[in-house]
Write a protein that binds this DNA or RNA. Structure first.
Length: 420
RNA sequence: GUGGGCGUAGCUCAAUGGUGGAGCACCGCACUGUGGCUGCGGUGGUUGUGGGUUCGAGUCCCAUCGUCCACCCCA
């Protein structure tokens, strides 16, 4: 039979790597508890419409990266490409948004995008993210960037940079777009093909273009920041003041434009130096129009998301060897021959109520059982053979000191002796 | 989606077009009821897959799948 491989862009998470995932999740829950966020778990597929409206028709994600299918009931469904739209949908659907109430939620799980795979980019990948919904205040933006920053430090990462920008709001953005078009129109013929297209659809993306010719043409272009309306400008200044108060360093990056259509005002990304082309470990921003877009009342929000595979790659680049060391058994119960099997089973069952205990499952020789115990890093090996069982004792060997003592079985069962 | 690199044992890698190897890992033996170190031995490959060229292909050609890099985009 021909082998079946995992689909392109997907990957199995195997031991010992799965230990790192367990540890990341454990630290996430613990940190979020301290920051007062509660977990929300939403479906991995949703109506296609949710993402079309939420993430945006114009975004690359919706235009070419969604896994969309029709189910047996003729519903158009999409595997979720990101988490925020689902959180907003669930908050609206369950009436969690009441005027004056601030919701703090986090989520964690697989996301799906039909993208060409590369290092740090997969078709099924995992994100963790958090949202503050119900507050338009700058301190909410700082709360999100702050919890993200704390989370990154909790994972043990170094060499991180926060880039911050404001992309304006539906009031001031159109005005800025026009100013930018006016500036670029005389230079249009010198721009690359992609940028000529962007000129009509999304001229702000031109600022992000990597083509050297375009870079030269945009010198002196009006900055988003100079074109912010009064409200957006004040908000941006206040966010910066809050970040300074919270002790978070950042760089202003006027070229930072995010790929999801729902962002307003604050946009940010965090980059890691050791990651190559896919250097963003996460990002986010404010989305004051999203809740309304998915059918709720007007409710402002701000959030972040981070890619867990990239976090692991960044940790590797930082030389963090082990997020979580292997679990070592306290005891390995070894049998001299098969007559001791039942006693060993009884004993290992009893020991497992108090700690981690292992026994041989393959009928291996005593020597081989010691090798197993050594490989597992067991602290002690308990030897059961005819000589011991007859007298109601077991030989207990300390693997570090090589000391062996006879211990009555009764004590091993009750944990009554220090020697066990 | 565009351009390019790479697919050989579980892992990391060798093999001028001429009988596919090594290290690590795994299993066993070294006076038979005891681990790590050492020595010796062993298991393990339809060379990603399918075609083609050739007396002969891991090696050359085509296709396909996968992977990696850059672009794009982003996490």
């Amino acid at each position: 039979m021909a082998k079946i491989q995992a689909p392109r862009g997907t990957h199995d998470i195997l031991p010992p790597e799965s230990r790192h995932w367990i540890e990341m999740e454990r630290r996430t829950h613990e940190l979020m508890r301290r920051w007062g966020f509660e977990e929300i778990r939403t479906p991995m597929f949703e109506s296609e419409e949710l993402f079309v409206r939420g993430v945006g028709q114009g975004s690359d994600i919706v235009r070419k990266e969604m896994y969309t299918f029709t189910d047996k009931g003729d519903r158009r469904l999409s595997l979720r490409p990101e988490g925020t739209a689902s959180v907003a949908r669930a908050a609206v659907e369950h009436g969690m948004l009441q005027p004056g109430r601030v919701l703090k939620l986090y989520y964690q799980g697989p996301m799906f995008r039909y993208d060409r795979p590369a290092a740090g980019r997969y078709r099924q990948f995992h994100q963790m993210g958090a949202e503050v919904i119900g507050s338009a205040a700058p301190v909410a933006d700082a709360e999100i960037i702050g919890v993200f920053w704390a989370w990154l430090l909790e994972m043990g990462l170094q060499g991180l940079t926060v880039r911050l920008n404001s992309v304006g709001c539906p009031v001031c953005r159109p005005a800025y777009r026009e100013r930018l078009r006016d500036f670029l129109r005389p230079k249009l013929e010198w721009l690359c093909g992609d940028c000529k297209e962007r000129f009509e659809k999304n001229p702000m993306r031109i600022l992000d273009c990597k083509v050297p010719g375009c870079q030269a043409e945009i010198v002196g272009a009006p900055s988003t920041l100079d074109s912010l309306g009064e409200e957006c400008r004040t908000h941006f200044e206040e966010v910066q003041a809050c970040l300074q108060a919270a002790g978070i360093r950042f760089e202003i990056d006027p070229g930072l434009v995010r790929g999801l259509d729902y962002y307003t005002k604050t946009a940010f990304e965090v980059h890691h130096a050791g990651l190559g082309a896919q250097s963003a470990v996460g990002g986010g921003g404010r989305y004051d129009g999203l809740v309304e877009e998915v059918g709720g009342g007007s409710s402002p929000g701000v959030g972040f998301s981070t890619g867990l595979e990239r976090i692991l790659l960044a940790l590797e680049a930082d030389g963090v060897a082990e997020l979580a060391p292997p679990a070592r058994p306290d005891w390995f119960v070894a049998t001299v021959n098969s007559d001791a099997r039942d006693e060993a089973l009884r004993l290992v069952t009893a020991l497992r109520r108090r700690g981690a205990a292992e026994m041989d499952l393959s009928g291996a020789s005593l020597k081989s059982q010691f090798k197993q115990a050594d490989r597992l890093g067991a602290a002690k090996v308990i030897v059961l053979g005819p000589r011991e069982i007859e007298r109601g004792v077991a030989m207990v060997r300390d693997m570090a000191t090589h000391q062996e003592n006879e211990v009555p079985l009764k004590e091993l069962y009750t944990g009554g002796s220090e020697s066990a």
